[in-house]
């Protein structure tokens, strides 16, 4: 009973099926790149986590290793950027946004430890790479508004920044274990600066709001470390 004089013109459903198939193909293509990126993110994170058990004097090795590991991530980002820019950005962003956030996080953490220093400059730990700097390192545009192509968004950057704060709160404790009483204070100040930044944002009830709500606990964790140190007169005298 498939006479075409019926209610449904079969072309309608042929079109829909073609559209669905086409999108599955795009989805698979993107997924392949994202899966690779995910593995590379895991390696980079593993290398960076050595910072928790490496004395500050030797952290340079971790940075060098992390920078070269991150280069693989950036290769994938380049592929992703090329593939994704063929399609409407926000239609597919959900597929890669977690992995991209993780990539940004690895770059931010590496930069904070002292990585991504310009030629001939002395490595300076404790710096926050801006979204533009991160974009440059990842070789992708940031916060695009005028055209529809792959980029990293403010939200992604900020979410990665919250992850950095979580990581630094952990680092503050581990520094003390390694006998480094200077960095907790540095971390504490950094967290407070970033927290003040988040406080000027008018956040709505979304993921960024939920994630950033946790910052205050991280600030407190690090303050407690600093307090413990100051109570025992362990803070380096010349600092602050």
């Amino acid at each position: 009973m498939a006479e075409h004089s019926g209610m449904v013109d079969p072309v309608i459903f042929e079109f829909l099926q073609a559209k669905v198939d086409q999108e599955s193909a795009i989805s698979e293509e993107l997924q392949e790149i994202v899966t690779t990126l995910e593995k590379q993110v895991r390696s980079a994170k593993a290398i960076l986590s050595r910072a928790h058990s490496t004395p500050v004097a030797e952290v340079g090795n971790v940075i060098t290793a992390a920078e070269s590991s991150i280069r693989y991530e950036i290769d994938s980002i380049e592929k992703l950027s090329k593939a994704a820019s063929e399609h409407p950005y926000y239609k597919w962003q959900f597929k890669w946004t977690h992995q991209v956030q993780d990539t940004i996080f690895t770059i931010l953490f590496c930069g904070w430890l002292g990585g991504y220093t310009g030629e001939g400059e002395e490595a300076k730990p404790g710096k926050l790479l801006t979204i533009e700097e991160v974009g440059k390192i990842m070789k992708v545009p940031v916060n695009l508004k005028d055209r529809d192509a792959f980029h990293i968004t403010i939200q992604e950057y900020l979410l990665s920044l919250v992850s950095l704060l979580d990581e630094l709160a952990r680092l503050a404790r581990n520094c003390v274990t390694l006998g480094d009483y200077r960095r907790p204070l540095q971390i504490s100040n950094f967290l407070k600066d970033v927290q003040a930044g988040f406080l000027v944002l008018n956040l709505k009830n979304d993921i960024l709001r939920r994630r950033s709500d946790g910052i205050k606990y991280k600030v407190k964790e690090v303050e407690d470390v600093v307090y413990d140190l100051s109570l025992r007169n362990l803070l380096p005298a010349a600092d602050t």
Binding site: L128, I131, I154, L158, V194, A196, G197, V200, L201, N202
Partner: peptide, 9 residues
């Protein structure tokens, strides 16, 4: 940092 966040805001 604050200047950057004001842009974000």
């Amino acid at each position: 940092i604050m200047a950057m966040f004001e842009g974000f805001r």
